[in-house]
Design a protein around this nucleic acid. Structure first.
Length: 118
DNA sequence: CTTCTGACA
DNA sequence: TGTCAGAA
């Protein structure tokens, strides 16, 4: 029911716009868990594709791998209102979530803000 | 030809 | 992160 498809690396690269390096790295750090073929070739699902796009966005915003790992692996850190829980189950990530975990998570953000004359 | 792992100027 | 080597 969940659509257990198996997309090859070549398609993933085109759909995500990432390089094979990036994709393998995400797998290395444990951001994604693609299936493996007999020849050790990675097989991704559409869900993985969306996740990689998400990871790319977060990385672009300045979040570090460690922070992204936490959020992607903790879909329900909530323990109170069901309303908020529903939002989290929707698979969407908020900056607030990361900020709560890593209040000082600013990498290239400073550079972006100060670089306004070019 | 494409992908995989491991390592590095 | 890119890129090379060697193997599959």
């Amino acid at each position: 029911m969940a659509g257990k498809k198996s997309i090859p690396m070549r398609v993933v690269k085109e759909k995500t716009g990432l390089t094979a390096r990036q994709i393998r790295y995400y797998d290395e750090v444990g951001l994604i868990f693609p299936e493996r073929t007999k020849g050790n070739q990675r097989l991704f699902s559409e869900d993985d594709i969306n996740r990689m796009k998400k990871i790319k966005s977060l990385l672009d915003e300045g979040y570090k791998i460690e922070a992204i790992k936490e959020v992607l692996n903790h879909p329900r850190p909530i323990k109170g209102n069901l309303s908020n829980l529903r939002t989290n189950l929707n698979n969407r990530i908020n900056k607030g979530d990361l900020s709560r975990i890593y209040p000082g998570s600013s990498r290239n953000l400073k550079e972006k803000y100060k670089k306004t004359k070019e």
